[in-house]
Each structure stands twice: as C-alpha cells, then as structure tokens.
Amino acid sequence: MTKIKRHRGWGHLVTVPVAWAIVAANVLMIVWIVLSSLKSTREMALHPWSWPKHFIWSNYRTAWVSAQFGAGVGNSLLLIVGSGLACILLAAPAAYALSRFRVRSSGVHTALFVLGLGIPAQTMFIPLYVAFDRVGLVDSVWGLMLIYTGAGIPYALFLLTAFFRSLPVELEEAAALDGAGPGYTFWRIMLPLARSGLITIFVLQAIGHWGETFFALVMLHTKTTLSLSLYNFTQTMQYTGSRYSVLFAGLVILIAPLLVLYIVLGRRIIEGISAGYSK
C-alpha cells in the first residue's frame, strides 16, 4: 500500500461513516441469519430482531437429518469440484488459443462462446433431458456435472481470455526460442502464471453451482444435492408448518462452506479478479 499521506477533505468525515454503515449492515445480516437459526420458529416470527432466549442447537440436527441436508453434501461437493475442474481444463486452453494464437476466426469463436452467457435455463432443460436420457445420464451426478461444466464455459472463457491477454508475450517467445511447442508452453508456462485467475473462476463457479436447484431438480430422480434439499424443504412448509428456524439452520449449513472458501482464498480471488477483469 502507498504510504503517502493523502489530502483528506472534510467530506471524509461524512462519507466514511456511510461506508462503514454499509459494511456493518452486511455483518449484521450474517449475525441475524445465525441467531435466527438458533431460535424457535415461534420466537423468530414474533421477535425476529431479539437475542435468542435459548440457543436451540437441535435445529441444526433437525436440518441435517430430517430435512436431508446431510444427504446432499457429498454430491454437492463432488459436483462443484468436478465441474469446476472440468470447466477450467476445457476453457483455459480454449481461452489461451483464442486470445494468443491470433487466428483469424478467433473473434467469431469468442463471440459464439460469449453469447452463451445469455441462454436461460428454462428454455433448454427439456431437450437436455431427452438427450441425456438416451445416453443414461439422467439421475446421474456425472450428467449434472456435465451440464454445470458446459454452462460454466462461457463465463470462464470470457474472463480467461481477458486474463491470458494480460500476460506478457515475451515469455512465450522465449519458450519458443528454446524449442518448446505450444502445448508445452501452455501447460508449463502460461497456465501456472494464470493460477490466480483459475482459482477465481473456480470459486465463482462454485458459488454459482453450490446453490443451483433448477437443473438438479429436473435431472436427479433418486439423488439430491444440498441446495435441492433446501429447496424441497421450503416447498413443503405449507403442509408441515413454517419451520423458519430449521430453514435458517439449513441456510447456515449452505452458506458456511462458501464463507470459509471465500475467507481462505479471499486474497487470491481478489488478485485473480483484478488481473482477470483488467486485461
């Protein structure tokens, strides 16, 4: 960080508290979600903003066992790790070639990929189901993983082309002078340099797919994911009663891994974002 003392206007006295108020609101929201998960549903409905009278830790057991949040955790982990890695392995070479090989059709190819950012899920699930059904990928975590991978490619490619473009060209030329082929240059030199960008993509995809319910609902029959269990739980409250506190325990279970991921990898993500977005 810069050490120069900058000129501060009196405006700072007004605006800095505003910034901190926004930060405080976000912290309070997380605290509120956690506290709500420890109340009884009645207490939560009648006194949503009070401190819990008793901490009801059993809400977590109820969420984990009877609302089946536990059953989906393994699948969710497999899905985000698998689809995240697959997406990067596919998109990174493509993004590299599109941004660095200077092939005439690069622009068209890139545009084709990026157009995928606009495809809405509700219009593509039926043909996907039919096609996957033919090849036995319905009710399969692998099939869902393939969808998440394919759906993630436009975003990953969009950011990674910008990222690779920002890397200095001299490295490749030096490698070429040493006799390295494009494959070697990519896997051994460029990919490691792009590490923070790759981690960023991985984490952003993980955040997106961790909470995905629509494709999971349609493609899985006997299996479940964490977010699908949560979705089902909210859908059933009409007949079993609005057990909001158990719902919030489930939400904490859903959010906590993301929060940990973000805190552990936070610095890297931010590095990746800054490099990735500013080409």
Partner: peptide, 19 residues
Amino acid sequence: FVYPALAVYMLIMVAPTLF
C-alpha cells in the same frame, strides 16, 4: 485447444438453444 471446449459447449448449450 479450442474444440474440446467448443464441443461440450455446443452439446450442452447451443444444441438445446437451437431446439
């Protein structure tokens, strides 16, 4: 480099869109 990604993308995203 490009076509593995393109193949998956075509299969998962583009073909259903044409449908």
